[in-house]
Write a protein that binds this DNA or RNA. Structure first.
Lengths: 209, 209
DNA sequence: AGAGTACGGTACGTACCGTACCCTATATGA
DNA sequence: TCATATAGGGTACGGTACGTACCGTACTCT
């Protein structure tokens, strides 16, 4: 009667036991689903495991904590902005298009998740923990540089006159806005950033000084 | 022997039981100390209560959760930037001075605490929860506006030509930097923001258009 | 076939949350 | 002055989630 540990339900009726990438993908998919339905704060490792039809052990074998797991899920499933620097023959159009492409993905992730990750992610010494990439390796920044580079080739502005801060300004501000504005950010913020800040700075670097 | 609940240690030997503001201040002080020594993430309500030599009940009677408690502690104890708009007869000097005054306090609070609060603070419906102030009521923004106003009076720039985004730009960027840059942010970021972004935009608004 | 590896499943100890409960000191006012 | 309401002190509890240990078992690889 003691109902010993032997009571292990046959997995599916057949002995189909997932391993390796199959299991890993199932967990990440579960994490992504759970993130979308429950939100970061209330998401638990156990819920992810249950949804993936496995158990916490299998999850912890791969990621040391919630933040790492969710980062992995984001990398795999979150909508990515296209990093192709649109080259439409006009700097303003290119930048606006690019920023608008960032807008949706950032919004999809949402401030709760970002704050949660940033909060729980101390870069602690854990065998499995990967550090967040430094600013200079930011893919979005690289894309902006490419866009500016195209404009330089076209002669819209003189080469190497734009400080890096100007180039990263649109991304930084957009991120800040998405991070601090709970509720809804209107999409015309992109146009504002470009027309009221970025382009005037570009013009200033051409004429002045 | 049963050691019933009657075993209540006399508070100090004398019946000095703190109430009202005295107790409230003790708790906030304890929260602040705990925040400095332990950090936001590992801070617990119980630890605060113990440090204040009281118990969780007294804490929860006043603040519904950690985020609210810490916000109250920050308001009471965190170093505040002076909101006096320095008026030294030069826009650049005024803005740099002002931003440098913000730098230290922001750094003292630290990204961990800010992210933690932003993460746990959903603006939920709780009788005791106060909403975060909207952007337009931002005291720092008001101070920047005052500084710009002084410059207008001096004739350094024409009135009402500066978009609000330009005015809030230095604060926004500084905040973003403090929020995302773990580790140390160099203080000359202030000068960069002013010289590479803000002042060029001011000049552009005077000349251009 | 044999051995190592990794999954499945359970159970556990810990930590913290938020609340209920009761007792007691203090403030208040009839 | 004494009764009463209020609020602090103290404890204990149920609940949730964490992260790990343990063990049996399916799968993989050679």
């Amino acid at each position: 009667m003691a109902e010993s540990k032997k009571e292990q339900a046959p997995n599916n009726g057949a002995g189909t036991r997932r391993r390796g990438d199959v299991l890993e993908n199932a967990i990440l998919q579960a994490a992504w689903d759970e993130l979308e339905t429950t939100g970061y704060n209330r998401l638990t490792m156990e819920a992810v495991a249950v949804r993936a039809q496995t158990n916490k052990t299998a999850v912890y074998r791969r990621w040391p904590n919630k933040a790492q797991l969710i980062i992995a899920a984001l990398i795999k499933f979150a909508p990515k902005p296209s990093l192709e620097a649109a080259d439409m023959g006009d700097l303003r159009t290119d930048v606006v298009t690019f920023l608008q492409g960032i807008f949706k993905p950032l919004q999809a992730i949402g401030p709760e998740t970002i704050h949660g990750i940033m909060s729980e992610y101390p870069g602690k010494e854990h065998p499995m923990s990967k550090p967040l990439p430094p600013r200079s390796e930011d893919a979005l920044f690289a894309a902006m540089k490419a866009i500016v580079g195209n404009a330089e080739k076209r002669g819209e502005l003189q080469p190497d006159r734009l400080p890096e801060r100007v180039i990263s300004l649109p991304i930084d501000l957009l991120r800040y806005e998405m991070l601090t504005t709970h509720g809804s950010v209107s999409e015309d913020i992109v146009v504002q950033i470009v027309d009221e800040l970025f382009l005037p700075l570009v013009r200033a670097s051409v004429q002045g000084e």
